[in-house]
Design a protein around this nucleic acid. Structure first.
Lengths: 192, 192
DNA sequence: AAGATGACCATAAATGTATTTTGGTCATTT
DNA sequence: AAATGACCAAAATACATTTATGGTCATCTT
């Protein structure tokens, strides 16, 4: 049971964080946008960082929803993996907030934001891990350490989507899918 | 033909950078350690950053040597890959300089150091790339984009050796080799 | 004459200080 | 009982002053 006030505060904070960044957003500003008194905010959140954590939690939940929606039970694990991650990335791109926060981490390294994004990363990895455990149980993929595998799959996605484009031309989404599929599922060895 | 003086300057700079970091090292300090006049340094290097670049170039060369030494022609591509990277990492760990520089990038983000380490990363990737091209030509591994493959192999190594330990227990070197071998060469698919 | 040098300088970084802003509280109001 | 905004300590900012540093070059050495 989430109060109307709390939702308004979170929406206001989300908008302000997305436009000005976390550090540059003041509690007074959030209160003003949300049209509540400053003190009211502290009825629902203990600190400014707590507001950010609440928002990130919401985002993680939405990401899980988006991913789950794009998963089709009949399709293979890797197909679903690509579809889900593609959905998440699209969602993330739409959501100016995460872009702004990533930028803030790079430029300012604001500790609260670093922590928040790291916890988001962990939640995504945990989600992937649960799907991997599932796929192993169903016999869809080989036995492997699900935590390490989830970590590496997530990192490879970030490497291809974010890091590669810092040095060369960005890779089209289609190619990212193909590459993850090739390296992770098939491997480089020549299977006879 | 490298002059004796130039070598002395580079050695002095290497030692000082390794102990105090790039930013905290002054030209006067380098001159003092190298036992040359300050002006002498500027006969061989145009700027302070130029000294760092020279040192990094030397390291890259040494890394290539170490890697090439640990490669055994008869062994498989992936075995040699692991041996070479393992050799480089050991070399790097011994070399306090690179550790200090990585630390400085994380903590201070000193631009000159960021640039220098990035160029080192590119050189390592180029080296791996050349070995991959070789392996494809010899028919040891499947056809693939050598540049992307080199990039991803390097990144996976960094992910496993550096990033994983920020969150969980560090992985033993042996396991890193096994993991890279498993994911990159074999893949998760169940090959019959 | 060619190589080497350190006093010297402009500028950048560090330090100190005054001023403003901001996260968080709580007595008062609704 | 819920909501509020004036209020406060602490942090961030801005500014002035001092110090440190990268790089130069006239002079010195060989």
């Amino acid at each position: 049971m989430e109060s109307e006030k709390k939702r308004k505060i979170m929406e206001a904070a989300t908008r302000s964080f997305a436009i000005f960044g976390y550090k540059a957003t003041t509690i007074d500003q959030i209160a003003k946008i949300a049209k509540v008194g400053k003190g009211t905010i502290y009825l629902y959140f203990t600190t400014k960082e707590d507001i950010l954590k609440g928002i990130i939690n919401d985002i993680a939940q939405k990401m899980r929803d988006v991913a789950n929606e794009s998963i089709i039970p009949d399709h293979s694990f890797i197909t679903n993996f690509n579809a889900a991650l593609s959905g998440i990335v699209e969602f993330r791109e739409k959501h100016e907030l995460t872009i702004k926060l990533f930028q803030e981490v790079k430029e300012l390294g604001t500790p609260a934001v670093v922590d928040a994004l790291q916890s988001l990363e962990i939640e995504i990895c945990d989600f992937i891990e649960s799907k991997i455990i599932n796929a192993i149980e169903r016999g869809e993929i080989r036995e492997c350490n699900p935590k390490i595998t989830a970590f590496l799959m997530f990192k490879m996605y970030i490497n291809l989507v974010n890091d590669w484009k810092d040095r060369y031309e960005p890779l089209p989404k289609e190619e990212v899918s193909n590459l993850i599929n090739m390296y992770f599922m098939e491997g480089l060895a020549k299977h006879k």
